[in-house]
């Protein structure tokens, strides 16, 4: 049994006026598209953000790496560490 449309003094809401799931999806997609195609590129042009991106690019850093294998350079022990630290103390 369908429920009768709710009647208020100022507004009559009919089923046809309800936001359908399809409309909700279209609305969400529109917001996401606006953020990714307009807002984020604009943020990317802010001087502080531009500076950060340039620094990372110039140093060949992949800040999105989840684990070490996704880094541009594998973090293998550099020579200076051997001079700087006693890695395995021998007691001598």
């Amino acid at each position: 049994m369908t429920r009768p449309a709710r009647i208020t003094p100022s507004l009559r809401i009919t089923p046809s006026l309800r936001i359908t799931p399809g409309l909700r999806l279209a609305f969400a997609v529109a917001i996401l598209a606006a953020v990714w195609l307009v807002v984020l590129p604009s943020i990317g042009r802010l001087p502080a953000v531009e500076r950060h991106v340039r620094l990372m690019e110039s140093r060949d850093v992949n800040p999105a790496a989840m684990v070490y294998t996704e880094l541009e350079h594998l973090p293998l022990r550099p020579a200076w560490i051997e001079r700087h630290l006693v890695l395995w103390p021998t007691g001598n």
Binding site: R59, V61, A64, M66, Y68, E70
Partner: peptide
């Protein structure tokens, strides 16, 4: 996150050639 660790380490370097903090951090 690993990537963020390296990014922060690079920001810590005294100059462009100073990769020591990033190397230790990574």
């Amino acid at each position: 996150a690993t990537g963020a660790v390296v990014a922060a380490g690079e920001m810590l370097g005294k100059n462009l050639d100073d990769k020591r903090p990033a190397e230790v951090a990574a």
